[in-house]
Amino acid sequence: MALKGAIVVDTEKCKGCGICESNCPTKTIGISTEVNGKGYPFAYMANPDACTGCTNCATVCPDSVITVYRVKI
């Protein structure tokens, strides 16, 4: 049985600090080149297929902008 995950980032509240990216064990997360309304780049799923929904990114996110979803397949 494998785990398949996905994250949703509240991009307007994300400050693009990159701590989620550095903590992602599957290198799912990247930091955008575009910026949000506050001028910050933001986290996104650069490699969505790799996400296992482990929640590490959301656990370390200082701004609590990441929601994690996970299914068993």
Binding site: G16, K38, P62
Partner: peptide
């Protein structure tokens, strides 16, 4: 995958919706 029944982690309801004034990456948050 992104369906309410599959949600495993999200913002705590005890946190307000205010955007934190802290610098990006600050441990306070």
């Amino acid at each position: 995958i992104i369906k309410p029944e599959n949600k495993v982690y999200g913002k705590s309801p005890v946190l307000t919706d205010n955007i934190m004034h802290y610098c990006p990456g600050c441990s306070h948050g």
